[in-house]
Design a protein around this nucleic acid. Structure first.
Lengths: 302, 302
DNA sequence: GTCCTGCTATACGCAAACGGATGAACCACG
DNA sequence: CGTGGTTCATCCGTTTGCGTATAGCAGGAC
């Protein structure tokens, strides 16, 4: 009736691809090398094609095996999400919730929120996956995503928060040394901290600030966190969130007339709506994240 | 080392949820009822919670089982995608490619393109999933998606095509009977065909056309296909793609000054970039789909 | 009322899959 | 150039898990 390969074979395939050898995969899976070899053989005969070229030191994956890898990985992340969803009794707050966010948000804004959350629900565990890539798919790579772009995919429960305000900032020491620019054109005489590679969001920003070009940057860093750190250490003038800069009295906003605004969304898969602890984390994030210029810096207390 | 449940158990779980009974699931899986019962028992003890309440006529899924169902389904669609990717030798065009698109596109535009494609690659099989839901996740539910919204998720290979132009149309017979509106305000005296429930795209459209309100519609249909059919049969005035209407000499464009434009995107998961036949279908779609007003109706020939 | 059809639960024999052990090939290192 | 540490392949005894068969129960048709 149904001659599809056993899903366990896919799991073994992924383990072998990740580990690089049958033996290492066996160790990772908690099984033995003959079993892993059998699984690979079974999958190869089921697919009618070779997956690895064997050699005595590890095996080299075929082009086919490489092309199957992302699918197998998706299955693995989904299986992990299923387990997270199942762990802990339903309606209880025991278990793990996985959040993905940008590094700045994860480092600067989330800790106090998560601390409060943990205090309210001592059995709740949090996994943080910080990345500036737009969370890849939400395909169960995380339970909840914090994003700076509006989600378009269906089947997502999205909540819009007050947008994030960004502005130019510098350390007081730097301004004492190099002076304070009065207009955006003055920036060419300053040490400007900017991005390295471009992302869509940045390109939109750059379009609104013509004089800012990648080549004029004195320091280029992809990591927004590194940019904030550079601003804090007095390297020069850079863009960072107003809500973050306001916490540090040594940081001064320059060119205050220029404010960039990014949307802020909290996104969760619709399927998790009924999951009590995902819901609790979602609600806590919605309540705790206000990165707009008007925010009283509530996230900084605690 | 690794005490996660065997992935095969998830597959069985999904089968039981879908089938409604152990026996039916066993038939669907090509196995036997005791085996399915064993799998369910094993998963229940692994999760430490009940998944079904047993009774003599079928079993009723627990709330927990229901909450796990979408995850299991994602695993199943991923497994299917993996199998599609593996079927047929790499670099060959044998195998299946699954496309999702709106019903109108699937019915009106795709057939000739797919016909050409099939002629060029006789071993290529196509699966069409027509739905107006925005393809849910692209999480391997389909290999290629044709969309009217800009994709924001990363890890997607997206190609923008000339946008789709929409305009008001009616059958010549209807206009002979009811007259031709000269301005948009005249529509209130006509039989207007419109949508039933609102979607984000429609809401944006409605914002630009104030006099059009859901309640003034003489015929409300969610299916765009049904709307086109209603226009063709002379029911009244409705919105449809200019490229479609132009093929039928009996259809007349009314209020030609009003053109609505939707973006058109072809989206594929990045992982499939190296897959020869997905690539071939992707390229054929990019080349064959031009639904803009300027299109010479090329998709209509053949 | 009885029969029939579906379902689940249980018992039992067997085959498939597993784990452990061994051997051969290969690399790094001394 | 030998030695220790990898790796994969193979063999074999054991066990897990499968399928067949059967019992028991609920509900619908007649």
């Amino acid at each position: 009736m149904n001659h599809d390969p056993d899903w366990a074979l896919y799991r073994t395939l992924l383990a072998v691809l990740d580990a690089g050898s049958l033996s290492a995969a066996a160790r990772a899976l908690g099984t033995t090398q003959p079993t892993v070899a059998r699984h690979v053989d079974a999958l190869e005969s089921a697919l009618g094609a070779d997956l690895f070229v064997r050699s005595q030191r590890g095996l080299e994956p075929t082009e086919l095996a490489v092309s199957l890898r992302p699918h197998a990985r998706t299955m693995a992340t989904t299986a992990a999400a299923l387990l997270r969803a199942a762990s802990g009794a339903q309606g209880d707050f025991a278990g793990t919730v996985r959040i993905t966010a940008s590094d700045v948000v994860g480092v600067e804004h989330l800790p106090p929120i998560l601390t409060r959350l943990r205090r309210a629900h001592p059995a709740l565990a949090i996994e943080l996956a910080l990345s500036d890539v737009v969370g890849d798919l939400l395909a169960r790579e995380a339970d909840i995503a914090i994003r700076m772009v509006e989600p378009t995919q269906g089947a997502l429960l999205a909540r819009r928060l007050p947008p994030v305000d960004l502005g130019f900032h510098a350390h007081r020491d730097y301004l004492d040394r190099a002076g304070t620019p009065a207009a955006i054109g003055d920036l060419s005489a300053h040490d400007v901290i900017g991005y390295d590679t471009e992302t869509p969001a940045l390109r939109a920003m750059a379009a609104r600030l013509p004089p800012l070009d990648r080549r004029t940057f004195a320091l280029r860093a992809d990591s927004n966190l590194a940019q904030v750190a550079a601003i804090r250490s007095g390297f020069g003038i850079g863009i960072c969130q107003v809500a973050i800069a306001r916490r540090d009295p040594a940081l001064v906003r320059v060119l205050p007339a220029i404010t960039l605004t990014l949307p802020l969304w909290i996104v969760m898969h619709e399927d998790l709506k009924t999951n009590a602890r995902c819901r609790a984390v979602f609600d806590a994030l919605v309540e705790g994240l206000d990165l707009s210029e008007a925010a009283p810096g509530a996230t900084a207390t605690c």
